[in-house]
């Protein structure tokens, strides 16, 4: 802009907003000092901007109580990935083919795909021996999945969240051992004081959490029974007792 040319409205608006680069700001301010038309234009733009702001201020300003815990929990929940979906579909197809044809290479393929779908569980799904202490376990629940704790704990809690995921995840605060079987998982927790974050797939048909054979939590379809109502975040919390 030469000193005699009038600044564009956009530059005057940027000047009002304090957004003009320093060198340009000096130039525009110098021009406006000697140009009554530009001073009037600046006043008009300021008035218009204030009216716009006043009108927009009429819109509702109350934001909902967004909770960072909910966001972090959602971010950490395992996601259903297309690879797993594709592998699961392939498993169904290959299982049918395997049962029908029974050729060795088809059976081998079924075992390999199963390892993708159930990476943490043993395949074939026969009862497996207890493994060494491990941090967590994840598996795709069948029509009914029981999470059975061997014993009550003097301390430690279970936190259950429902999520749009495929896998049921048990994430303890300290390593325990598990035995995964077709009907769920046994948690060998004798002497442990761990707490457990458990993510249950929202579409799981029937999931129970038992401590020494006593049912503490049950999800049957969309109906949930728990020792205490869900927290505001939707999470259920109860002791391992």
């Amino acid at each position: 802009m030469s000193s005699s040319a009038h600044p564009a409205d956009g530059d005057l608006r940027a000047l009002l907003d304090g957004e003009l680069p320093p060198a340009q700001r000096v130039e525009v301010e110098q021009h406006a000092r000697t140009c009554a038309a530009c001073r009037a234009r600046v006043a008009a733009l300021e008035s218009a901007a204030q009216e716009t702001a006043a009108l927009l201020a009429l819109l509702p300003t109350a934001a909902p109580d967004l909770r960072i815990e909910t966001i972090v929990s959602r971010a950490r929940a395992p996601r259903l990935r297309w690879g797993v979906i594709a592998a699961a579909l392939a498993l169904v197809v290959a299982s049918v083919a395997g049962a029908t044809v029974g050729r060795p290479y088809v059976r081998a393929l079924v075992v390999r795909i199963r390892a993708v779908v159930h990476p943490e569980s043993s395949a074939p799904p026969a009862p497996s021996p207890a493994r060494g202490g491990q941090v967590g376990v994840a598996f795709i629940p069948g029509p009914q999945a029981d999470i059975s704790f061997d014993a009550p704990q003097s301390s430690g809690a279970v936190y259950v969240s429902l999520a749009d995921t495929a896998k049921l995840v048990i994430d303890p605060s300290a390593a325990v051992t598990y035995r995964v079987h077709p009907g769920g998982v046994v948690v060998h927790n004798v002497g442990s004081s761990a707490s457990y974050d458990i993510v249950v797939p929202r579409n799981a048909l029937h999931v129970r959490i038992l401590v020494a054979g006593r049912v503490l939590f049950e999800k049957a379809g969309s109906r949930v029974t728990a020792p205490a109502p869900a927290e505001p975040t939707g999470r259920y919390a109860f002791d391992v007792r």
């Binding site: 564009a8 409205d9 956009g10 530059d11 005057l12 608006r13 940027a14 907003d17 957004e19 003009l20 733009l45 218009a48 901007a49 009216e51 716009t52 009108l55």
Partner: peptide
């Protein structure tokens, strides 16, 4: 960045006219 001021002026005019 240099176009934001101009676009804000125009958007504001259109908004106030519509209002």
């Amino acid at each position: 960045r240099s176009s934001v001021g101009t676009m804000l002026v125009r958007a504001g005019e259109a908004f106030r006219k519509a209002y």
